[in-house]
Design a protein around this nucleic acid. Sequence first.
DNA 1: GGTAAATTGTATCAATTGTTACAAACACGA
DNA 2: TCGTGTTTGTAACAATTGATACAATTTACC
Lengths: 224, 224
Amino acid sequence: MANLHILIQSPVFRGLTEEQLGRLFQGLHFQIKKYAKGDVVVSAGEICDRLNIVQHGSVKAEMNDYSGKTIKIEDIEAPNPLATAFLFGKNNRFPVTVVANNEVTIVCIPKPEFVHLLQADRQILNNYLNAISTRTQFLSQKIKFLSFRTIRQKIAHYLLEQAGDRLQTVEVPHTQEQLAEIFGVTRPALARTLGEMSKEGYIDMQRRYIKFLDKEKMNKLLES
Amino acid sequence: MANLHILIQSPVFRGLTEEQLGRLFQGLHFQIKKYAKGDVVVSAGEICDRLNIVQHGSVKAEMNDYSGKTIKIEDIEAPNPLATAFLFGKNNRFPVTVVANNEVTIVCIPKPEFVHLLQADRQILNNYLNAISTRTQFLSQKIKFLSFRTIRQKIAHYLLEQAGDRLQTVEVPHTQEQLAEIFGVTRPALARTLGEMSKEGYIDMQRRYIKFLDKEKMNKLLES
DNA sequence: GGTAAATTGTATCAATTGTTACAAACACGA
DNA sequence: TCGTGTTTGTAACAATTGATACAATTTACC
């Protein structure tokens, strides 16, 4: 059997020993597919009825906008799975087209077989549930963030979150450039708003260190 | 054993027969808890190490903003589960405080026991995976939507999505008020933008019926 | 300590959207 | 048919942010 042990490093099979992995894959019905650079691994709209894991190489996920132009979404390196959110759920079609970046091998496990794996091994089950759940949590957070209208609100939310129980000073672990990226705003707009909030007595700011002056006032920003 | 058959209508146990459900719950270690109106079912920050399903009655999920004021997030009616995304994944703490709206009973299955159920019954496994995956898909869609900056882009995205393969006319199944809500903008702003796009030759609009005049031009709006 | 690169502060103007208000068109039941 | 409530069209002004440019400050490295 080919070099499956690399799969132990994938989020789905992590935590297994080589023996366990070997045993589980014995008698399992699966394929290993090879692709050359530029080959289409899956097309957008195709039914997702199998778990694909990149074994070697890397692939890119692309999307077509409505005019047919393709936009690159992300790169997926070995040994990571493709589109774990579309193997189950209401929408069982790949939302993206996946293209090989170089010589690629893909481990391809049909959905019924994978369900067997989930039932047979608690570690795999936990891994998979954790992976999807973590993603859901991440997306929820992101939406919460995007739903704040003004930059002031985003700043307030971010700082209060960072602060947690600490009452005084927060060291921001990002540059303004990065923060602006996270907030989805331009860097000067962020700096301007920080400046305003400083002048208006919300915070006292020394570069990366931000001190709360009036938490109450700041909380009110988030109430609209 | 109490009236567990109602659980068959919950997303987690749907598709099971009463016999199957009965067999699975025999020997299962679980609790049924009762709460009076106003009781706190779970507090925000509490560790989520069990699956809670509302068996009778309804509960509300609340969140504290940073100033301690509580905001109602949603109501959960029987027979639906609480916080399915936080039983697994990196963050295992409830993000919300759950309070009983009336007399409530909650079926409470410890995580290890629930993992047993997932392994023992393929239907439950599929139900649970489908539930989380569908939610992930929903959130992904929503984020894609929120990531469009201008109202024109949101309109273009929405209309092209609605149109699908149809080339001509779309009937919008919402009022402008509702659409504005979905887009996260004010109603007059939406109407204004629709008017502009009409004048500029993107669309021809008769109330709920919108006709594409220049799909190419519209696609270009989404390319920034 | 000095220099180049990175980071931050600030300013100006245009574009977009929110806010508020009111009129016009439509839908529906009496 | 006539009102009445809902939905849509439109307008004026304020607020917010994007875009762009450049100066000031800090940091890192030699």
